[in-house]
Design a protein around this nucleic acid. Structure first.
Lengths: 221, 221
DNA sequence: TTATTTTTTTAGATTAATCTAAAAAATAAA
DNA sequence: TTTATTTTTTAGATTAATCTAAAAAAATAA
């Protein structure tokens, strides 16, 4: 269980993990370079090292997948990241758009007892401030079924429970419109012209959001 | 104010800071090598870089002192270390002998708002779990006057308020003997033979400690 | 004050992570 | 199925932090 991976290797594993969602289980060099803000040549070098450590399955020119060990390591980093985000928002009073970069640093602190105690201190939260599920200490992720607002139909209602875009500009916009986690919404109209959506937020007056915004808000029905 | 110093440079600054206590304001290469667990040659290399960045005053063969900028950086790391230690003990329930290594990692997280919010969350503690003073956000250290038990005389009493040895074995020993921060002690006898000391702890039965132990416990009269 | 010892620095390598530019492989287009 | 394009890898450098061994300076002892 000893986490002897470097800060840097951890970032690559995390990138591979986030890129291998659902259908796309195999990840390419360029995607990783993009996500880690490095160049393809640097990625190739690191892939060799990660393969050496049996954290990824790597075949030249064919892309990579995580091994069980690699997936464990990645999930553990995600767990740490999300728990720290909860801490920053719930205990220190940061806004949900301010915590990503700090959690990005905190996620590399290596202490299993620290993170498990933090988990308990926060009362074992199920999700981070953006609604993303927090893996439990065994690495299991309990993901609730959420749908995009853009996939809802007229008169359907639900509770905002997540976002799929984490940029500060986007989160601040949602904040301003009252579209925060826990808000109850109901689709009042879908505009035919451009697909923008009118909705009631917490039974208050209609607000209109673009299709682009609607695609990035996740709702529990 | 931007903390763009590497993890490693920060550790050297911290080492120099801790070595330049009171009388010994000039610090030597070998002392730094010892404290950072590196070799003298590595220290020399780093000293050149720190001098380049105006964080230390360095003259070949003569040792180093911190510049104001270097001292600020060092004090800031100490502030972060001690605040995190308070967090670990007060909020997460760690013992005072368990927090050093974790704080050693946490102290390198760079976010001024994080540390100031943490400070407030902890209600601006004056000292860490070992009694060491926590620099305030301006960098000022309010150090209480403390004396070693080994410097006390018979019948004198005081409150244990700090330790000058932070090893786990030592702290566990104190824990076991009830010699923890806040305990009230009274010197009942100083044994002539070997200088060991008998004392009352919180008005309970006499305990005896060696001179060596007594030298490392600090008391407020 | 000269000789010896200790401390510090320099010289030259090593390792990890990165880069650019060029070569090789895979994919897409004609 | 050739040709062109894109993706990926290799080759060769660079930077930061470290090391060992040897040289230089400073401190200590004879």
């Amino acid at each position: 269980m000893s986490n002897t991976h470097s800060f840097t290797a951890e970032n690559y594993l995390k990138a591979i993990y986030h890129l291998s969602t659902g259908n796309n289980s195999v990840v390419n060099t360029n995607q990783i370079a993009e996500m880690t803000s490095t160049k393809a040549a640097s990625v190739t070098d690191m892939l060799k090292k990660l393969a050496e450590k049996k954290l990824i399955n790597y075949i030249k020119y064919q892309g990579v997948t995580l091994t069980d060990a690699g997936k464990n390591a990645a999930v553990n980093i995600v767990r740490k990241h999300r728990l720290w985000e909860v801490f920053l928002v719930e205990k220190l009073g940061f806004k949900w758009d301010e915590v990503h970069d700090i959690a990005e640093e905190l996620e590399h602190i290596n202490s299993e007892s620290l993170i498990n105690r933090l988990d308990d201190f926060l009362e074992n939260p199920a999700a981070d401030p953006h609604g993303d599920p927090i893996p439990d200490r065994s690495g299991t992720i309990h993901q609730k079924k959420l749908i995009k607002i853009s996939d809802m139909h007229q008169n359907q209602s639900g509770i905002i429970s997540g976002v799929s875009e984490h940029s500060s500009v986007f989160l601040k916009l949602l904040e301003k419109m009252g579209l925060t986690l826990g808000a109850k919404i109901r689709i009042s109209e879908i505009i035919e012209f451009d697909g923008s959506i009118m909705l009631l937020v917490n039974d208050h007056a209609d607000k209109t959001i673009s299709r682009e915004v609607a695609k990035n808000i996740l709702v529990m029905l």
